[in-house]
Design a protein around this nucleic acid. Structure first.
Length: 642
RNA sequence: GCGCCCGUAGCUCAGCUGGAUAGAGCGGCUGGCUUCGAACCAGUAGGCCGGGGGUUCGAGUCCCUCCGGGCGCACCA
């Protein structure tokens, strides 16, 4: 509601300024610093003053006189040295919210592709991976909430060096073959992804002292590429099992995908060959004849030496494959995968996986008009190379619509390392944070963290609801844990490095997910309590006349509360435009805060004046809906009780 | 050396395409549970927005410069 008035207001002023002064003036509707200035402010007179060479206050006065009425706006006044402050018609505003008029959403024509998670399937997921997934998943939910069509891809690099290193660990360090690994997989006392976590760190360490062991890696990669031999079979065993583990971990956090494109298919279906032909044909890369990159195919431009795309031995680098993949996402490659259904989520959504089996189905994946790659900031150079590849092929539009949705890493605070018993060097101890490293096995595993959070939440739930069934308490604790974790990772803006602190992440008070959940639970409790007392939740539309609504909203307090609760669409649109899930998190917290304030200050069920009571109940229900919806966009469920 | 990011309250961070008196959480201090459950609420202290120039009617926000910190710049992914 707030947002639709914002849009109408902005349009009215823009049209009027265009007609009256002949200027197309892009300006945003602001929110005044002080609430007694009104609900919105238009700063257009300042910008116009520059062009018209007149005093802003005079222009503002003209605008107010001439712009004409805007639906929902009760008054406009000139303030300061040229602000136009807007006062809304409170009764009409409340009545519109009561009528629950649906907001106009964007017509979903084009498809947006979001790639996120993208964890190498060779070890357990860690906290940094969870930030990636939380950001990607939330951004997807945000766009879907605006009515956009979004496809979620989780790319699986099942043929890369990292998988190969774990295979090397199994085969050459532990002398385990296919049968042994299968036995390990069948052993329910072993968490396979954890096992690989340690093994990967061990193999990486081994290379350091035994550089000759790198030939094992080469042999493994060769076997994988050829698609034959025991090493290749081991690689598939490892990657498939770890992918399963990752999907399970992510499902705990309510993260789901539409399709899993795998590198093995990119290899077997020769995606790279098609991309290579295009790149050569359009001269986006050239064969270097001298210098250190001699005999390599190189993409010029980004650095002095250029970026090697094809090595002198003829193999393609990671970026090369990524260019092919990016071309496919836009439907520009001229090739497609085959697909088979991989699993069905509880909500009915089917997750597909790619296959090279030509008898399998064709699918409706890729061919996006806009692509977001959720990848950490350290890879921005490589993402630039990919975009440059598109440009080199003449796909400038697609390059522009190819967004590196970057975010900073999750590091560990020194205190957190101490809590986890991680030994630090003298040097690291002085730093404000320590970078996690899969190679060193240094990091917080996602499942461990979730388990710890659930245990802590369960203590709280047990203390408060000892009478509830254990299974139910467990579910509530799990929802609280996920709420806490997702909120914690989302409340930071993307380019802020998170110095992960266990104690902070375990907090359920203040600006946290549980705070938001608690507010929603309280709102529900009131409505439930009412029914327990033998009353019915009123038919608000029937009982609250426009006059009654206007009367109640004369209270400045109520008005401000309702205003705060009704800005979801405005907040959401800004957050999507800025690409910042943190803005939604912040908004959710503000609504929760407003509700807690309301809850504390006004007895609702015991209110004796009928009109006021109905109004208060409506406010409670309105807050509840807004809290549930906003939390839902953050991927945070509301427990039955807390 | 080159490129990107960061520097705002004791700590962790917001601050929307430049706008009115710089905000929140935590921590500190003071108060509030016989009430719709206190995972809550109210109050309070705490700031040359890293330094210096500039652009502008107006700068935490844009430009330049310096200082401090982080991350990239492989025939690894």
């Amino acid at each position: 509601m707030f947002h639709s008035i914002e849009k109408q207001l902005s349009r009215a002023f823009r049209d009027h300024i265009q007609a009256r002064y002949g200027v197309d003036l892009p300006f945003g509707v602001e929110q005044p610093r002080q609430s007694d200035f009104g609900e919105m402010a238009v700063p257009a007179a300042f910008q116009l003053a520059k062009q018209l060479r007149q005093a802003p206050r005079k222009i503002a006065a003209e605008l107010v006189d001439e712009v004409g009425p805007v639906p929902g706006v009760a008054a406009m006044e000139v303030a300061g040295n040229g602000y136009i402050n807007i006062r809304l018609d409170r009764g009409a505003y409340g009545a519109a919210l009561l009528a629950d008029e649906p907001e106009a959403t964007v017509a979903a024509g084009e498809k947006i592709i979001v790639e996120h998670t993208n964890i190498n399937p060779n070890k357990a997921a860690h906290i940094g991976h969870v930030r990636n997934a939380a950001l990607g998943d939330t951004f997807v939910r945000m766009m879907r909430a605006l009515g956009q069509r979004v496809e979620v891809q989780n790319y699986i690099d099942n043929t890369g060096v990292q998988v190969a290193d774990v295979v090397v660990g199994f085969k050459f360090l532990e002398d385990k073959g296919v049968a042994d690994v299968k036995a390990l997989l069948a052993d329910s006392s072993v968490r396979f992804d954890y096992y690989c976590w340690d093994l990967y760190a061990r193999t990486s360490g081994y290379y350091k002292d035994h550089p000759e062991a790198l030939q094992w890696r080469a042999a493994t990669l060769h076997s994988i590429e050829a698609g034959e031999g025991e090493l290749s079979e081991l690689a598939h065993l490892v990657a498939d099992a770890v992918v399963e583990a990752h999907l399970a971990t992510m499902l705990r956090l309510d993260v789901e995908y539409d399709v899993l494109p795998r590198e093995s298919e990119i290899l077997h279906l020769q995606f790279w060959a098609s991309a290579f032909e295009q790149l050569k044909e359009r001269k986006a890369i050239y064969l270097e004849t001298e210098g250190k990159n001699a005999h390599c195919w190189v993409m010029p431009g980004l650095s002095e030496e250029g970026k090697v795309i094809v090595r002198s031995d003829g193999t393609v680098t990671y970026v090369g494959k990524d260019i092919a993949y990016q071309l496919w996402k836009f439907g520009l490659l001229g090739k497609d995968f085959y697909y088979r259904p991989f699993r069905k989520y509880a909500d009915g959504r089917v997750l597909w996986i790619t296959t090279d089996d030509a008898t399998a189905e064709r699918g409706d994946f890729g061919r996006g008009s806009r692509v977001y790659n959720v990848i950490d900031a350290r890879q921005s150079y490589l993402q630039d190379v990919v975009a440059a590849g598109l440009r080199g092929l003449g796909y400038n539009d697609q390059a522009d619509r190819s967004v590196h949705f970057s975010y900073e890493m999750v590091a560990l605070s020194p205190r957190c390392c101490a809590d986890l018993g991680i030994q630090l060097s003298e040097e690291d101890r002085k730093r404000t944070y320590v970078e996690v490293s899969g190679r060193k096995g240094l990091g917080v595993k996602a499942d461990d963290l979730i388990d710890t959070l659930i245990a802590k939440a369960l203590e709280e739930v047990d203390a408060r609801h000892p009478e509830s069934p254990a299974e139910e308490r467990r579910r509530v604790a799990s929802q609280i844990a996920v709420g806490a974790l997702r909120y914690f990772l989302l409340k930071f803006t993307r380019n802020s490095v998170i110095a992960f602190d266990l104690q902070e992440a375990l907090s359920f008070e203040g600006e946290t997910g549980p705070y938001v959940q608690y507010a929603a639970v309280r709102a529900r409790n009131i409505l439930r309590k009412l029914e327990e007392l033998g009353e019915k939740v009123p038919d608000f539309a029937a009982e609250l006349s426009p006059e009654a609504m206007a009367r109640q909203l004369q209270s400045e307090d109520f008005w401000q509360l309702l205003l705060a609760a009704s800005k979801a669409d405005s907040a959401l649109e800004r957050a999507v435009a800025a690409g910042e899930p943190a803005h939604v998190a912040k908004y959710a917290f503000q609504v929760a805060q407003a509700f807690n304030n309301f809850y504390h200050q006004y007895p609702i069920i015991h209110e004796e004046n009928r009109e006021k009571k109905v109004f208060l109940l409506w406010m409670t229900d309105f807050f509840r809906r807004q809290l549930e919806r906003t939390a839902g966009i953050l991927g945070i469920a509301i427990p039955d009780y807390m």
